[in-house]
Amino acid sequence: MSMLRTIKPKNARVKRALDEREPKLVENEKSAIFVRGQNTSEKVRLAMKDLYSLKRPSAISFSRKNDIHPFEDASSLEFFAGKNDASLFLTGLHSKKRPDNLIFTRMFDGRVLDMVEVGVDAIRGMSEFESVKASIGVRPLMVFHSDLFDTHPSFIALKSILLDFYNGHALPSLPLTSVEHVISITAGPLPPAPVPTSTNPTPTQPLPKVHFRVYTVALLPAPASAPPRISLTEMGPSIDLTVRRIQEADEDMLKQAMKRPKMEKRTQLSGLGKKRKNIETDEMGDRVGQLHFKKQDLKGMQGRKMKGLKPGFENRGKRSQIKLPGAKAGGAAEGDDE
């Protein structure tokens, strides 16, 4: 943060924009930055492109390469976070040691909170599926399968970060017909534990693959009282991932990040603490809005057009008298002088 100069607002618009970045009781939706490292592979680029389109509109895609290795030095990510007011990152990298690498990074207060590194084993992009895609900005449903997401620390971290990525911002309400797609994340079964050998007495347990699938949801006609029936069509991307390195959150920082504001339940339920101006619900349950208008200017209003109401008509006769002393008053003045 220190690299960024502090901006002093010079006008109200800038001030509003800066206030929007201040810490709040009810936070803005977290936006994500998608940034490529110095080397990337085709798989990584495709995965980033599709994950970006799922995250839109609260996502920023960087078009240039950046020399970033988040696990070694996350200072550039912290700089980007401060500059763009973003707190989620997806960094794509490719190296001999870690091919087709994706790194999810989460920030708190402009500093890195935790990171999860995954490798892309197989990918089929969104364009490979001939199906209707979900509209931009529609909130997905998310489903996680496997007990590992509840027990294994790496998978718990992955679950938390993916939830934060696509569904982290709690909504007060949801139009039920607006459900369009579901992100399904499944971990495979744990492979059998490797047998310790003389050269490697404590072999590491290999982790199962994680399958990232996205389906569009169609609600089928069903009786109103019965639970909804659905059909799913895969819309892509379909990505198979392996979990690699994990950087867990610093305990103190996580404690700070998990603090919840004390809010009344009512404010939480209605509009989540945001000030709603001029909108009320009356006794009948109707929403009533109050509009403010400027005072209506009646001076410029066009009334009935009459010769006598023309501006300067009153003085016309008098002026002609002054201009032409002794001369006969004009026809127009005659009526006026009566």
Binding site: E22, P23, K24, E27, N28, K30, S87, R106, M107, F108, D109, L113, S160, L163, D164, G168, A170, L171, P172, S173, L174, P175, L176, A249, L254, Q256, A257, M258, K259, R260, Q268, L269
Partner: peptide, 16 residues
Amino acid sequence: TATLPPPKTLLPREKA
């Protein structure tokens, strides 16, 4: 429109 309850899963805040 369904009124959603507050989330059960706690996720870290973005800012303090």
